[in-house]
C-alpha cells in the first residue's frame, strides 16, 4: 500500500490519538513544572466606630487577573516532584538518617502519601496478576471437563464479574461485606467477634481489594485459557496417555507448556490493567487505608477545593514512568520479533 493511501486511511485515527493522548501527556509534563499562584495579600484598613484596624486578606481581583494571564500557575521547576507529597527526597534522607532499623524506615516511608500509593499499586499489580492466571487456568480446565450442555450457562455466569462496571462490581461486593451486609455478618458470627469489620484495618482492606481484583479479572483469564484448551493437539495428549502419563502429568507436561504463551498474554494485559487500579478504592471507600497512584491524581483534581494541577501532573508523570518500566520487556520482545520477521 503506498504511503499516500496509508495516510488517507489512518489519519483520522492517528489525529485523534495524537490530539487526545500524545499531546495531553506533553501537557501533563508541562503542567507538572508549575504550581498554583501564591495568594496575593493586600492590607485593608477597616474603620469602625471603635477606631481603625488593618487586616490582611486575599486580593481577589488581582488573583483573578493573574490566573487569567498565567492559567498554568507559576514556574516551579522540579520542585513539585521532590516535595513531601511526591518523591519526598528530603524526608527520605531524614528517615534513613534517623531511623534505628529497617522496620522503622519502612513504617515511616509508608506514611508518605506517594510511597504509600506506590507500594499499594505495586502490591496489587504483582499479587493479583499471578493469582488471576492460576485461578483462571483451574476454572478453564474444570469447565472444559464438564458436559457440553452445562458449558454455556457456566460461561455466561462466569463472565459477569468481568463485564460489570468496576465501580458497580466493587459496590455490590462492598454492600455484602459491610458489617450490616450478609457476608460481613456471616464473618462476624464465624469469628464470634461482633466488631469485626473488613474495612476497619488496613491489612484487611488490602486483602479485600486483592480478592476483588482476582474476582474481577479471573473470568478474563478463564475465557482465554478455555479457548486455548480447545486447540490443544489431541495427538500429543493421546501419545502422552500411551506413554502412561496420568491426568495431572498430562496437564503438567502437555497442556501447560502449550498454553504458556497465552499466560504471557494474560499477564501483560493484567499488568497494564491492574497498575491503574482506581475505581475499587472508591467503591470500597478504602482511601483511608489503601490509595493507588491513580487515586492520588483523582484526589488532587477532584476532591480538594481548587484542583491542584501541578501536583496531579507530577504524580501523572511518575505514573507514566512506571507504566513505561512495566512495558519495557514487552516492547523489547516485540522489537526483536519484528526484526527477525522478513518483510
Amino acid at each position: 500500500m503506498p504511503h499516500k493511501t496509508f495516510l488517507a486511511f489512518i489519519w483520522p485515527s492517528l489525529f485523534a490519538m495524537i490530539l487526545f493522548i500524545a499531546i495531553p501527556i506533553v501537557s501533563v509534563g508541562f503542567q507538572s513544572l508549575y504550581v498554583e499562584h501564591e495568594q496575593i495579600m493586600i492590607e485593608a484598613e477597616n474603620c469602625g466606630p471603635f477606631g481603625c484596624n488593618s487586616e490582611v486578606r486575599v486580593d481577589r481581583e488581582a488573583m483573578e487577573q493573574l490566573r487569567e494571564e498565567q492559567p498554568a500557575g507559576r514556574f516551579h521547576g522540579l520542585g513539585t516532584y521532590t516535595n513531601p507529597s511526591h518523591l519526598a527526597i528530603d524526608d527520605i534522607r531524614e528517615i534513613v538518617a534517623t531511623s534505628e532499623n529497617f522496620g522503622e524506615i519502612r513504617n515511616r516511608i509508608m506514611n508518605l502519601p506517594f510511597y504509600k500509593a506506590l507500594i499499594f499499586t505495586l502490591a496489587y499489580t504483582f499479587i493479583v496478576t499471578p493469582l488471576v492466571i492460576v485461578l483462571g487456568f483451574i476454572i478453564a480446565v474444570v469447565v472444559n471437563s464438564i458436559p457440553n450442555v452445562l458449558k454455556g450457562p457456566v460461561i455466561f455466569f462466569s463472565l459477569l464479574p468481568m463485564i460489570v462496571t468496576p465501580l458497580v462490581g466493587s459496590l455490590v461486593l462492598f454492600w455484602m461485606i459491610n458489617s450490616r451486609g450478609i457476608l460481613g455478618a456471616a464473618l462476624q458470627s464465624i469469628f464470634g467477634d461482633p466488631t469485626l469489620s473488613l474495612t476497619a484495618s488496613p491489612a484487611l482492606t488490602w486483602v479485600t481489594l486483592f480478592v476483588y481484583g482476582v474476582w474481577h479479572s479471573a473470568p478474563f483469564a478463564f475465557v482465554v485459557f478455555y479457548a486455548g484448551l480447545q486447540t490443544v493437539p489431541r495427538d500429543t495428549l493421546e501419545s502422552a496417555m500411551v506413554d502412561g502419563a496420568n491426568r495431572l502429568e498430562r496437564i503438567r507436561f502437555v497442556v501447560i507448556p502449550y498454553l504458556l504463551p497465552l499466560a504471557t498474554f494474560i499477564g501483560l494485559m493484567q499488568l497494564m490493567d491492574n497498575f491503574r487500579i482506581f475505581e475499587p478504592i472508591i467503591g470500597f471507600s478504602a482511601a483511608a487505608s489503601a490509595t493507588s497512584l491513580s487515586y492520588l491524581i483523582y484526589n488532587d483534581l477532584r476532591l480538594s477545593d481548587t484542583p491542584l494541577f501541578g501536583s496531579a501532573a507530577a504524580t501523572s508523570m511518575l505514573t507514566i514512568v512506571g507504566v513505561l518500566i512495566l512495558l519495557t520487556p514487552v516492547l523489547r520482545r516485540n522489537w526483536r520479533e519484528f526484526n527477525r520477521k522478513p518483510s
Binding site: L14, M17, I21, R276, L331
Partner: peptide
C-alpha cells in the same frame, strides 16, 4: 510497527493521567 507499539503504550496509560492533562 511503530504505530502499533505507540498504540500499545497509549493503551497502557492510566486514563486518569490523560484526564489530568485535559482539564486545564
Amino acid at each position: 510497527f511503530w504505530i502499533l507499539m505507540a498504540a500499545l503504550v497509549f493503551r497502557a496509560m492510566p486514563h486518569v493521567t490523560l484526564v489530568s492533562g485535559y482539564l486545564l
